[in-house]
Simulated scan of single mutants.
Amino acid sequence: MKQNKKVYLQDLGNKDYKETWDFQENIFAKVVEQKKQKRENSNIETSNYFLFVEHPHVYTLGKSGDVSNLLLNEKQLQDKGATFYKINRGGDITYHGPGQIVGYPILDLENFFTDIHKYLRLLEETIILTLAEYGLKGTRSEGETGVWLDVGTPFARKVCAMGVRASRWVTMHGFALNVNADLGYFDNIIPCGIRGKGVTSLHVELGKEIDVEEVKQKILKHFTNLFEATLLLG
């Protein structure tokens, strides 16, 4: 089967969570439709996308999540200028907000490999290699998707959350890397439903404001290498 490893990159800037979710769903539906057409005409290529976005303060709860992991009521959410959505990715609750790089790869994995675990591990590796460029040793925590620092110590803390949805080998949702994020917003949830583990950011770890655009370029470099992809501006 002919594989298309071209990935269209779009940076959406600062965009409302629901608007971005709808945008993702539209792209996802388009790629699934292309796959149906490809069954009848093998010359049709399915498209791949990579979206960067920064969201206003928002909490999202995955399919398997427990709403009690949100520690705020509706009024408190409003007071904090935050919104809340139950969504169709895997995982529990997480926070998105300013100073965080959110990446949504919408890929037809049949263009790359048909292995969802490999997909998640390569997304983690993309972040691990990016962190290494800043002198930080990111690692995986067994049974907990995402990227952590100091796993296996009392000081384990998550720097990048991940949660994806895949259907017919098409992916959506993705990762959220804390760069200059206000970590105080994590105090209002039990992140990913995991008690007793901290959250951190590049800003906190390195003790200085980090250039977000520079981090994005490093992420893209490692993503394209690991997925053997070619980036195009979408």
Rank of each mutant, 00 (worst) to 15 (best):
Y134Q: 00
C160T: 02
G146L: 02
L149H: 02
F155M: 10
W169E: 08
V159F: 06
F155Q: 13
A166F: 08
G138H: 04
Y134N: 06
G135S: 03
E133S: 13
R168W: 05
G163T: 04
V159Y: 06
D150H: 05
G143V: 05
R165D: 11
A132I: 10
S167M: 14
V147P: 01
G143C: 05
E144L: 06
D150M: 08
G146E: 06
V151D: 13
R140F: 02
G143K: 00
T153A: 07
W148L: 05
L136W: 15
R157T: 03
L136Q: 02
V164T: 13
R165M: 05
K158C: 11
C160S: 10
V164E: 11
G163I: 04
V147E: 06
R165F: 11
L136A: 01
R165Q: 13
A132M: 10
E144N: 14
A156H: 11
C160R: 15
G138P: 05
G163Y: 04
S167W: 12
V159M: 14
L149C: 07
G143N: 02
C160K: 03
G152F: 06
C160N: 15
W169V: 14
G143D: 13
P154T: 09
R165N: 03
R157E: 11
G135I: 00
W169K: 07
T139N: 03
G135P: 11
D150Y: 05
A156Y: 00
K137L: 00
V159D: 01
V151A: 15
R165T: 08
S141G: 01
R165K: 09
K137T: 04
E142L: 11
T139I: 04
F155D: 10
T145V: 12
W169H: 12
T139D: 10
T145R: 15
E133Y: 09
A161E: 00
V164S: 00
D150R: 12
G152I: 12
M162Q: 02
S141W: 07
V159I: 14
R140C: 02
T145H: 15
P154Y: 08
L136F: 02
T145Q: 10
D150P: 04
E144Q: 07
W169Y: 14
T153M: 01
W148T: 04
A156V: 10
E142R: 08
P154K: 03
L136E: 15
K158V: 08
L149I: 04
G146N: 02
R165G: 13
T145W: 12
F155C: 13
P154W: 11
T153D: 02
R168A: 06
S167D: 04
V164G: 09
R157Y: 01
R165C: 08
P154I: 02
G152R: 12
A166D: 03
G146P: 00
E133N: 11
M162T: 05
W169S: 11
A166H: 12
W169C: 10
W148H: 03
G135C: 09
G146Y: 07
A156E: 14
K137R: 07
K137Y: 03
F155V: 14
C160E: 10
T139V: 10
A161F: 09
V147H: 05
L149S: 13
V164Q: 07
K158Q: 06
R157H: 13
A156T: 15
R165L: 04
T145A: 15
G143W: 03
